[in-house]
Each structure stands twice: as C-alpha cells, then as structure tokens.
Design a protein around this nucleic acid. Structure first.
Length: 510
RNA sequence: CGGGGUGUAGCUCAGCCUGGUAGAGCAUUAGCUUUGGGAGCUAAGGGUCGCGAGUUCGAAUCCCGCCGCCCCGACCA
C-alpha cells in the first residue's frame, strides 16, 4: 500500500499532480494558470532562494528591484525579443473601474495613454537603466540580480513546470567586451550547476542551445538539462550572452580608456519555481516527494506518540529537548533543521503527512523511547522493508551524533540515484537516423521510459536546421543542447551524413 | 488556440443513457472502546450537482452557450 493513489508507472502526469497536492506543495488558484504555493512548497522555494542568493552575492552581484509594469514602448526596441514574447504578454490598459450596467468594468474614460506590460522578463527595463548608469569603462562590469515574479500568458499550464505567473531570479550584467561577458555567462551557469546538483541533488548536463532554441535576442544561450523519471528532459536554468544586441537597441555605451565610445556586452540568466517541479519528478516516489535534506525546510520531524495521558507532558519535553540538541548540530553546511510536530492530530496521520512531503527523517517517539533514552525513526529514502514500514531504534545520544552524517548520506544517495538514472538513459549508440527512428518511433507505449540520445551533427543553420527540427518533431523530439564536454572526434551527422562537428542531446522535453 | 476527457460533500467517485428537487467510501465533529503505530463501534454535520440561458408541471440528468481543470498537439528563456 502506497501513500499515493496513483503510481508513476500507471500514469506519470497524474502521479505528478497527486504529489503536488498530497505533499502540500501548491494548489490551483481561482486565477487561471496561477497557483497558490503552500507552506511546504514555499519552504522549498525559500531554501532554494537562500542557497542561490548566497552564491550570486558571493560572486559579486547585488540585488536590485525593478517595476512589475513595463512601458509597452520598451518592447518595441529589440525586434527578436518582441517577437519572442509578444504572444504571451499581459497588458494593463486602464487605471480605474466603473459600474456599468450593474457590472464592474474598466472605465472607458480611464484608459492609459501608453499601455503597460506585466513583465515577462526584465531585459528592456533594466537595459534602459543600464543606458543611464553606464558612462565609462569604470562603471563596468555592472552585475545585478533581481528576485521577482513574472507573467507569461501560457496556452498550457502545469503546476510549477509552466504557470502563467512564476517566481524567479534574473541576473543582468554589462561588460566591456565579449570575453568578459562570456566569462560571466559561464559563471552563472556554474552557479546554477552548483545549486541544482549540490543542493537539489539533480544531476544536469550543461551545454549550448542550438540556434533555434536561443533566448529571443541572445547571441548564445546555455542551459542545464535534467532528466525526469519518465525520461523527459527539463531545462533547469539558462544563461545568455546577449552580445551587443540590447546595447544597440537601448544605447548602452561607455567611453573606453582612449575616450572612444563602445557598446557594452550584456548577459542575462534565470532560474525559476519550475525547478521545484523538476525536483518532484526526479526524486518523488509512489509515497510522495523525497526531499533532499539540503532543500528540506525541516530535515528531521519529530512526532510524539501522544496518548492523551499524563505522561504526554514528559514525552513532549523529551521531544523538545531532542529537537534543541539536533538543532545545535551542523550538516550540509548549515545548522540542522529539526522540529517537533505538535499539531493536535493522530500520530499516524502526521507520519504519513511527512512521508508524502518527503521529510528526510521522521522520528516517532513514544513513552517507552523516552523512558529508555532512545529514538525511533524512519528514513524517507529507506521507507519500507518488504511491505512494512521500516523503523529503527537507537540510543538518543548516538542518534544526535549520527544525524548529520545520516542527512548527508541521504543527500548523496538521492544524487547518486538520479545520476545513475541519467547515465543509464542516455543512448550514445544511435548513430544513424534509422536507429533514432527505430528507437523513438517504435511502439509509442507511454509506460516505457525513452531517455535521451547523444548524437553527432554538422550544426546546420537556418532552413537546414529548420528541416532537422521538423524531422525530430515527428518523433516528438527536440534538441536539448550541445554538451560543453565534447569528444575529440565525431561520427557522421545523423541528419545529413556530412562530417560531424559537434555532439548534441536530443530528447522529449517538458 | 485545435482534438479528446472531465467538472456532483474537504478527497475519490456512483447516479445522467431510460427527467420525479442527491448517494457511497474516506475525511470532519461528538461519545464509547482501543493504544508501539496508516484503529473499531455508534451517532451527527456537510452539496443552490462548474456558470448562464432554454425545453418541461418538474432538470445533476435533455438542448445551447460559456468557464475551469487534465491529457495530446501547436506554442513556449
């Protein structure tokens, strides 16, 4: 018997929805395509923010805040950028409501002279500020970051993975030249790798996006690609070298040491609440989420087995003291996060609530444990032994000493499991188009996992690239990225038979 | 935005074909029993059946329109 009614094997999308709901992560809101992020889900996001923000600051960036609303005219400046976002922008046109025919409607007399766009990303308004702030080479590099909500009017939304409104972090920087800006682009990618792999325990492959998958207005786009348990890829973060495109469009110029005017080279990079969805699909099991300890808002949850009897008081004290002792310990680079679940609910219900949320360690302390000075716990990543829930009892002092190593072990275990899955599901032997078609085209049974393929190609451009993506689309495949780590020599291009110049990852994707 | 599905109690769903003003299980509340582990018995509360218009003496049920959600597609840093 599992804690969720749907298993991954039965129906992966249904299972995903069940985890979001049952683990108390988020729920659908009355506003179309938007979600209410609940305490455990928000706690995960806050852990992400803490870890990401620390790394962004440590590398010389500072946080700013720009407006939610952007003048429409700002978007008209960078042609590709507008084209990329025009179809999904929410527009504010009025500043007042009025009762008309018994209905509240925008007041026709209160139309804005210039409509405002709810930001889908902030390149334009930040670029505008850059153009005023940057005058001299001494003003560069300018490295800033913003934590914000953005809105993109998506046709098809999915909790965390693609919502109309989402929370994210967007870094924006300006540099004297390409070399400096490229260094920054790769630095951002490394910051992302560190948080996604070391904190979220999600193994990723870093690489460059193909021409057709680039951010609108970017010169080069790099991504982190993660593999979900159904074999699909999820873009876990992107970093863009914008060249001088935005500098030209928005007049971001500086005077160099010789007094000559130069265009700044800019970058932008972002990660979002989408990663929470990725974490669910990488680490979840049929009992709910398995939260990596470094991400868990509560790493150790203590459930006292209260019986409504006099000894309850002593039991509560024992548990509170245990939590306090654990909180003095250090694990995964920070203080251990342990707390007692004092909610007035049945202990077994509380246990399963925490199992579904994926608390790494759940302690269940009864009067006998308190009397014997011991701790009985279950480990989320080793929940069952056969059909039964596996619990372990150890002396309290030993548990406190071992807890940090236990948490670190769970963190490592989750990462190793995910990495083994990633490596096992990348085919490197599909070196002809026929082989690709045979593999991905055959028996479209949704239940068998079809992972990624790593293939050589001749890096076509323009119409040739268009034809390649059409062929891939027929198999529901997309080009994910060209991994940074490339072999010394290449097979023939699987699409054209020409000499290969690069290897790319192709996969079905979210 | 196209195709398919779906919307009935907090949750999972039955009822709809063959109209007669609402059901089950779980959850909730109360009482009793139980107590090293997703307890048992008894009782109670809870729904303008997604929204709107229509046919009808009468609509959860039939007709029309709209909306949300889920899946596939298109689209998508």
């Amino acid at each position: 018997m599992h804690a969720l009614k749907v298993t991954r094997a039965e129906d992966f999308p249904e299972w995903y929805q069940a985890v979001v709901r049952e683990a108390d992560l988020a729920e659908q809101s009355p506003t179309r395509g938007c979600m209410i992020i609940k305490a455990w889900g928000m706690g995960l996001w806050e852990r992400f923010v803490a870890e990401m923000d620390a790394r962004i600051r440590a590398t010389g960036h500072e946080n700013y805040y720009f407006p939610l609303l952007i003048p429409l005219s700002f978007f008209a400046k960078e042609a590709e950028h507008v084209e990329g976002f025009a179809k999904e922008m929410a527009v504010v046109t009025h500043h007042r409501l009025k009762q008309i025919d018994n209905e509240l409607k925008p007041d026709p007399d209160a139309e804005l002279t210039e409509p405002l766009i709810i930001r889908p990303t902030s390149e334009t308004i930040i670029g505008d500020a850059f153009s005023r702030w940057i005058k001299s080479y001494r003003d560069l590099p300018l490295k800033l970051n913003q934590w914000a909500n953005v809105m993109r009017w998506e046709m098809r939304t999915r909790m965390f993975l693609r919502t109309a409104e989402f929370l994210w972090q967007e870094g924006h920087t300006a540099h004297v030249d390409e070399a400096d800006a490229m260094e920054e682009t790769m630095l951002a990618l490394e910051i992302y790798r560190s948080v996604v792999e070391d904190v979220m325990a999600i193994p990723v492959i870093l690489g460059e996006k193909s021409e057709n998958e680039r951010f609108p207005g970017a010169e080069r786009t790099y991504s982190l690609e993660a593999m979900m348990q159904d074999g699909k890829a999820l873009q876990a973060g992107t970093s863009h070298y914008l060249g001088t495109h935005f500098a030209e469009a928005q007049n971001i110029r500086y005077q160099d040491k010789d007094g000559a005017m130069q265009l700044a080279h800019t970058t932008s990079w972002g990660t979002s609440t989408r990663l929470i969805g990725g974490m669910i699909m990488v680490h979840g099991d049929d009992d709910g989420l398995r939260t990596p300890p470094a991400m868990a808002p509560k790493q150790i949850v203590i459930v006292p087995m209260l019986r409504g009897k006099p000894e309850d008081t002593e039991l509560k004290e024992y548990c509170a003291a245990l939590a306090a002792e654990l909180n003095k310990k250090t694990a995964l680079g920070g203080a251990v996060r342990a707390s007692v679940d004092v909610k007035d609910a049945k202990p077994t219900d509380k246990r399963w609530d925490w199992v579904r949320r994926g608390a790494p360690i759940i302690c269940e302390i009864g009067p006998r444990d308190a009397a014997n000075g011991q701790v009985t716990f279950i480990q989320r990543t080793a929940l069952r032994e056969g059909e039964k829930v596996k619990s372990t009892s150890v002396a309290r002092a030993d548990f406190v000493v071992q807890a940090p190593a236990l948490l670190e072990g769970i963190q490592q275990q989750l990462f190793d499991e995910a990495r083994a899955r990633l490596e096992a599901n990348i085919r490197a032997d599909l070196n002809t188009w026929d082989a690709i078609e045979a593999y991905y085209g055959a028996g479209d049974d949704e239940s068998d996992v079809k992972g990624w393929a790593r293939v050589a190609w001749s890096r076509p451009s323009g119409d040739d690239l268009e034809r390649v993506t059409e062929r891939l689309k027929a198999l529901k495949l997309t080009i994910r990225n060209a991994p940074l780590q490339q072999p010394a020599s290449f097979d023939q291009c699987v699409f054209s038979g020409k000499p290969g110049v690069e290897e790319i990852l192709i996969a079905r994707a979210y």
